[in-house]
Design a protein around this nucleic acid. Structure first.
Length: 412
DNA sequence: GTCAATTCACATGAAAGAGACCACGGTCTAGTG
DNA sequence: CTAGACCGTGGTCTCTTTCATGTGAATTGACGA
């Protein structure tokens, strides 16, 4: 019986008119051929990179801008263009390597980054096991042999430096003086506007020979982008009037993040499609926003290690019991109790303090350090998600950690 | 009432250890001719 | 004789612990008006 209904479902699914023509266009890894409202920046990047065509070393470049302001897309676009031109003119000595420093297990440590670069140059490097300077040497030799002008795009470079310090950058900027037949230029991309201020002055000056700032898009610009993509992604007349405007407004409210706007539009359309609607309506956007947020939080929570989950559960329990700000000491006590119940060895307060700070970074809670005068200094903890999501993650954690909800009564 | 010192309850930093993972080279073992 | 199993060494990486130091305002207490 169940089988029959599933078959029926699939058959109906095929019959249904899809709203999408090409969903890929709305996904974040899509590289458009045309980038509206970024002409000036692209032009600037092009000017800086151009010397590479004459086998001169382009200046190092530093690019700032919030998430979803088109930094990565613009750089990749320009890079592709310059490679095309170079190829047409028979210049094969330009190489552009793009590395996203935030990607875990790929380029988030010194060793991994250099290993990744060496791999791009065709060297086989093991995931671990070699001394870092050995890998440096391999990368250096491969690079020198290749006789290229290498443009190194380090995306989310702030993450890398935050984790591993600026020594890598120092080494990379210095590498040119030792290379005989090749040269390296670095393009650093950062979401963090004040990031460079904390760099070693030597690194800072050599890295930011040129700087470009990507301002956030305003609502109208986001509308343009959405329209352009929507035209490719959807069939004609699928979007009700006002849908694009609302998506844009939502995204503009959050520092002009175009990526978010596109995601919102995509999910809204998915919602509409699932409901069997012939058109995407404005109300779908609200549902989409809720859905995105919920999925984001749930994914994060599930992916966390047990200790994080226990800490988070402690916070949620206290919050559920009394909706008020919570302090670190209190959480730690409950956390310890929870650990014994779930058979985990409790971590030290020092560590839990860090975990709370990390949960804050993940955007699940708000933790603010405050001083209560005579009564010490602590973090004021608050929940950053709405009640529906809170209930959901609480339920998930109970399942994940095998806690029975009634035990909650013991807390308090 | 004013002002500096004190005090609390953690925050924050630095260093170092534990344990997982991995490559490499040397040694041992079993199979083969 | 040789391929493959196995082991020890030396490396990275992540998560923790330990020890040390920092911090900001309520409170306290001395002081003078």
């Amino acid at each position: 019986m169940a089988k029959k209904s599933v078959t029926k479902f699939f058959e109906e699914f095929i019959k249904k008119e899809p709203l999408f023509m090409d969903k890929v266009v709305l996904q974040s890894n899509y590289h458009p051929d045309d980038i509206p409202h970024r002409e000036t920046q692209i032009h600037q990047i092009a000017q800086i990179l151009a010397p590479a065509l004459r086998k001169n070393k382009p200046s190092n470049l530093f690019i700032y801008g919030k998430t979803g302001t088109g930094k990565t897309v613009s750089v990749n676009y320009t890079a592709k263009q310059i490679l095309d031109v170079a190829e047409k003119n028979g210049n094969t000595n330009i190489k552009i390597i793009y590395v996203n420093c935030k990607l875990k297990k790929i380029a988030d440590t010194e060793y991994r980054l250099i290993a990744q670069l060496a791999r791009e140059l065709g060297k086989e490097i093991p995931i671990t096991g070699l001394p870092t300077d050995e890998v440096y040497k391999m990368f250096f030799n491969a690079l020198d042999e290749s006789q290229t002008t290498l443009v190194l795009v380090l995306d989310e470079i702030d993450q890398l430096v935050k984790k591993t310090g600026d020594e890598i950058l120092y080494n990379l900027t210095r590498i040119n003086s030792e290379l005989k037949r090749s040269q390296v230029s670095i393009i650093g991309i950062s979401n963090d506007l004040i990031f460079a201020d904390n760099l070693d002055p030597r690194v800072k000056s050599s890295l930011s020979e040129e700087e470009i700032i990507f301002p956030p898009y305003n609502a109208f610009q986001i509308q343009d982008i959405l329209r352009q993509r929507a035209e490719m992604a959807f069939k004609k007349e699928v979007l009700e009037p006002g849908v694009i405007e609302k998506c844009a407004a939502y995204a503009a409210r959050e520092h002009g993040d175009a990526r978010r706007a596109l995601e919102l539009l995509r999910v809204a359309a998915e919602v509409a499609e699932r409901n069997g609607q012939p058109k995407v309506q404005i109300k779908d956007i609200d549902e989409a926003e809720e859905k995105i947020e919920k999925e984001r939080v749930v994914d994060i929570v599930i992916a966390q290690p047990k200790q994080f989950q226990i800490t988070l559960y402690s916070i949620l329990s206290v919050y559920a019991a009394r909706k008020d700000t919570i302090f670190t000491g209190e959480i730690y006590e409950i956390y310890k109790g929870l650990c014994t119940k779930t058979g985990q060895r409790p971590l030290t307060q020092r560590r839990v303090s860090d975990i709370i700070a990390e949960l804050d970074m993940l955007g699940i809670i708000n933790a603010k350090v405050t001083s209560k005068g005579r009564y010490g200094r602590t973090r004021e903890i608050d929940i950053a998600v709405n009640d529906a999501i809170l209930e959901k993650i609480k339920f998930l954690l109970e399942k994940e950690l095998d806690i029975k909800p009634k035990e909650q009564a013991d807390i308090q």
